[in-house]
Simulated assay, not measured.
Amino acid sequence: MRVEKRKKKKKKKRTWLRITGAVLLLLIFGAGAYGYSVYKSFTNAVEAMHHPIDRKTSEKRKEQVALEKKQPFSVLMLGVDERKGDRGRSDTIIVLTVNPNKNSVKMLSIPRDTRTEIVGKGTEDKINHAYAFGGVEMSIATVENFLDIPIDYYMQINMEGFKDILDAVGGVTVNNDLDFTYEGVHFPKGEITLNGEKALKFSRMRYDDPRGDYGRQLRQREIIQAVIKEGASLSTLTNYDEIFKALGSNVKTNLTFDEMVQIQKNYKTAGNHIEQMTIKGNGTRINGVFYLIVSDKEKQRVQSELKKHLELN
C-alpha cells in the first residue's frame, strides 16, 4: 500500500512539473508587455528566482549562446523535493529546446531511473542521482553527456508549489474528449474548467482510457495549451502579483532579468508551439536495483532530433 502511494506521489510530481514549465515559459515569453506594475512585480520575482551557478559556458558549445542573435537555446528543468538536511533528488527531469527560427519548443522527459554515467562521480547510476551527488551543476553535466547537447540554462522547481502556481492563473479550461470519473471526480465530455487539484487528476488517469498512456499525454497537452491561453488572457492579469509570488517562492534559475527580456523580445511566439518528446528504454535489475536501459540507437535518435532543433553542426 505504501509503495503504491509513493508511486502515485511521484506521478503527481511529474505531471505538475510539465504544467509549471508551461506557466514559466509563458511568463518568460510574454511578461514583458504587461506594463509597469506587472514589470515591477516580475522583476521582484526574477530577483527571488535568480540563483547563478559556477558555470559560464557549456563544454558542448564553443561560445555562450547569444540570445540577442536569436540563437536556439536549451533549458534543463529539475523537479526537486527538498528535505531538511537533505539535498533531495530530481525526480523529474525535462529538457526544453527553444528555436525561434522554427517557432517551436521541444520538451523531452528523461525517466528518473535511466542508467547513465554520472559525470564528476565516476560511476554509472540512475540519472536523477546526479542532483543528490552534486546538485544542479552535476545534473547539467550528466544530462549534457547523456544527450550530447549543451544545456544553456536551468530551472529548479520545488514540487510542493505546483497547485499555488496553477491556481494563481485562475485554473484552466480544456476540451475533454472522454467521459470518465477518477478519484471521486467526474469529468464529462466537452469544455470543462479545472482548478489545480482537478487538473492534476484529469492529467493522471490512464487505466480507464482505451488509448492508455497516449490518452493521458493528450490530456496533459490540453492542460499545457490551456495554461498558455489562460495566461495570455486579460482576466489573468489581475492575478499577476499572485502568479509571480508563487513562482518566486518555488523556482530557482540562472536566467537573469536581461536574458528573460531578450527571450521575450526574440522568442515570444515559440512558446505557443510545444512538442512533447519521449525516450524509450527497457527496464532491468542490476544488483537488485531497477534501471531503465536506453539503447545506443534510441539515444542517437533523440540526440539527433535535439541537435537539429538547436541547429548544431
Score class of each variant (00 low, 15 high):
residue 299 K to Q: 12
residue 82 E to V: 11
residue 35 G to S: 07
residue 54 D to P: 04
residue 78 L to K: 06
residue 312 L to R: 00
residue 272 N to K: 14
residue 298 E to Y: 09
residue 303 Q to A: 08
residue 57 T to H: 04
residue 82 E to G: 06
residue 282 N to W: 14
residue 240 Y to R: 15
residue 98 V to Q: 01
residue 108 L to W: 05
residue 279 I to N: 10
residue 217 Q to G: 06
residue 25 L to M: 12
residue 189 K to A: 12
residue 37 S to G: 14
residue 247 L to H: 11
residue 150 P to W: 02
residue 88 G to W: 01
residue 240 Y to D: 03
residue 19 I to Y: 06
residue 83 R to Y: 02
residue 306 L to R: 02
residue 223 I to V: 15
residue 39 Y to C: 13
residue 151 I to F: 03
residue 233 S to V: 12
residue 190 G to D: 05
residue 142 T to P: 04
residue 225 Q to T: 15
residue 306 L to G: 01
residue 95 V to L: 04
residue 133 F to E: 00
residue 160 E to C: 07
residue 41 S to V: 12
residue 65 V to M: 01
residue 309 H to E: 14
residue 257 F to W: 11
residue 284 T to Y: 08
residue 125 D to N: 12
residue 8 K to D: 12
residue 171 G to Q: 04
residue 163 K to C: 09
residue 40 K to V: 15
residue 119 V to F: 03
residue 224 I to H: 03
residue 133 F to S: 10
residue 193 T to R: 11
residue 177 D to Y: 10
residue 148 D to K: 07
residue 50 H to P: 02
residue 290 F to Y: 15
residue 113 D to Y: 02
residue 74 S to E: 03
residue 69 K to Y: 02
residue 116 T to S: 12
residue 268 K to Y: 09
residue 259 E to L: 05
residue 167 D to W: 13
residue 100 P to R: 09
residue 152 D to H: 09
residue 199 A to G: 13
residue 163 K to N: 13
residue 102 K to M: 10
residue 220 Q to G: 03
residue 280 K to R: 14
residue 28 I to G: 01
residue 78 L to N: 00
residue 136 V to W: 11
residue 213 D to K: 12
residue 148 D to H: 03
residue 205 M to E: 08
residue 60 K to T: 00
residue 37 S to M: 12
residue 139 S to N: 00
residue 76 L to E: 00
residue 284 T to Q: 04
residue 252 K to S: 05
residue 14 R to I: 15
residue 169 V to R: 10
residue 23 V to A: 14
residue 60 K to Q: 05
residue 288 G to L: 05
residue 288 G to K: 06
residue 80 V to H: 00
residue 38 V to N: 13
residue 31 A to I: 14
residue 65 V to P: 00
